[in-house]
Design a protein around this nucleic acid. Sequence first.
DNA 1: GCCGTTTTCGGCCCGACTGTTTTCAGTCG
Length: 582
Amino acid sequence: MGGDPYTQALVNTVKNSEISGLFNKIADILEIKNENPFRIRAYRKAALNIEGLPGDIEDVALKGKLGDIPGIGKDLAGKIQEYLSTGKINDYEKLRKEIPEGVLSLMNIPAIGPKKVWFFYKELGIDSLEKLEEAAKEHRLQKLPGIRQKTEENILKGIGFVKRSKGRTHLGIAWPLANAIVNALEGVDGVKELQAAGSLRRMKETIGDIDILVDSSKPDKVMDAFVSLPIVGEVLSKGATKSSIRTKDGLQVDIRVVKSKSWGAALAYFTGSKAHNIRLREMAMKKGLKISEYGVDKGGKRIAGKREEEIYDVLGLPFIPPEIREDTGEVEASLEGKLPDLVELKDIKGDFHLHTDWSDGVLSLKEMSEAVREKGYSFAAITDHTKSLVVARGVDEKRLLEQNKEIKKLNKKLKGIKIISGAEVNIMSDGTLDVSDKVLKELDWAIASIHSGFQQSKEKITWRILQAMKNPFIKAIAHPSGRLLGERDAYELDWDAVFNGARQTGTALEVNAYPQRLDINDIACRRAKELGIKVVINTDAHTRDQLNYMKLGVSVVRRGWLEPRDVLNTLPLEEFLKALRK
DNA sequence: GCCGTTTTCGGCCCGACTGTTTTCAGTCG
C-alpha cells in the first residue's frame, strides 16, 4: 500500500474516523459534564479536521506532522499518538466510566442535548433509549421541573425518528426534491431569490437535510407557503425567518429567509462546509474583518454581504465553486490563483454507458438514440449487458454482432448524433470476460464491470479487474467499486493496484452517475487526475429520465477537482476514439 | 484545548426557535 494521500483516503481512513469519533465522544461527555465550552469546541474542531483529512492520520503521525493539522496542539497530538500505539485514549477511558455509553447515545435524539441527558440520568437513572421512551410514555418526565407535556411529546417523536431513521439521503432523491421545493416557492409574493444551500449545493453524494435560503421582503408569506407544501409530513418549527419541516418520507427541510443585503453572506454561510467557513472566518479575523451569516463587518461597519462573490473578494480570493468548499486545499489554491477550471455539464459531449431493450433497458435502439440527441449530445455508446448476466437478459455474442449491424444502419439514417456500438462486458469470477476478443474487436467501445463474486478476497477481485484492464478492447472499467449507497458496501479492492493498472494499460475509470453508485467517488477522481488517468462520466441509463443523472456524475468529478481535459466525454469524437487506443 | 505580524495569556460566533417560564434555558445549525 503506497503512501499517497488520496488512495489512503479511499481505502484506509478507518483510523481517522475512529479517532474523530472518539474526540467527538469526549466532547459529548465534557458537554454533559458542563465543562469549559471552548475546550469542548477544541475537541469538535479537531474531530472535524481529522475526519476531513485527505490522507491516513497514521502517515501524518509517522512523519511527525500531527501538529500541522489545524486544531491539533501538543495535547491532542499526544492523544492521537496514544491511540495509534495502544488503541486507547486513557483520558477517554476515565471519562466513559463517569457517563455510560447508553447515556451518550441519547445525544442522538433530536430535541435532546447535553443538559437533558444529564438531568434524566441524574434524576431518573435513564441510560438507554428504551428507558427514556418508557419514562416518557408513563409521563414520569413531566414530574421534573421544566419538563411538561410538550417536551415529553417531542422526546417521543425524536425517539421515533431515531428508531426509523435510515440515515442520509442520496442526491438522486434530494436533488429533485429540493428543485421541486424551489420551484414551488419561486412564485410566492415578495420572493426575490431562492436557492438550496448546504451539502446539497456542494453536491455531496449523500445529504442529511435540505437547506433552502430565500431573499424575500415578505417572510411570512414564504413560511405559510412552505409549511403548506404537499410534501410536508410534519411541521417541526415555524418562525418569522426560520422554519423546519419533515417530509412524508422523513427528510428534514429547513428554510431560512434573509434580507437582500445579507443574501450573499447567508448563502456562503449556509453552503458550508463548516470547515471551509472556519477557514474563511479565520482569514477574515487576521484582516480585522468579521464574517457572519449577515455580512462582512469592518470596525462595526458592514462592508459586504449582498452577493456571495463579495465574501471572497474582501478576502482577496477568487470565487470558489461550492463543490470544492471542503477545506481540502481549495483556499490555498485560490490564494495561489491555481483553482481548477471545473468541468461543467455543457462540456459533456456524449454518454457512453446506455442500455436498450436488447438487454434490460426500456427504450429501443432508435428511441434511446433520439433521446440522447435530445440531451444535446453529439455521440453516445450503446452498452447492453452481455450473456452471463442472465437477470438482465444479457446479449450473447451473436446478438451483439447483430446489434452492431443495426447500429451501423441506424447511423446512416439518424442525423445529428453518432451512435457507437459497445457492450458492458462481465468480468467473470475467474477473471475472464464473457465475450471473446474476436467479437470485442468488432465493437468501437467496450467497458467491463463486476456483477458477481462480490465476496471474493481483495486480492482476487483486484486481480479480476487488472485482467480486464489488460484486454486491449476494454477501454474503461464501469462502476469500479461496486458500492450501492445505502444498500451495499463496495467490494474490497487494492486501489493502488487498480490505479496503477489503469495508468499502465491506458484504461479509463468510469464515474457512474447512477445516484446509488456515484462510482468512482470524488476522492478517487482527484487521485485519478493526479496520476493522469482519464475518467469517463456515464449515466448507465436504462430509461429516458435516467439520462438526467449526468448532472450528478458531473458534480462528482467537480468535487474531485476535474477539468475538461481530465474527462473523456468532453472530447470531440475523433479525439475520443484516438484516446482509446491502448 | 488551541493559538499568536495586536497576544505565550486571554480570547475563542452567536442568533433563532421552542417550551417553559414570567425573563430565560436548552437545542440547533
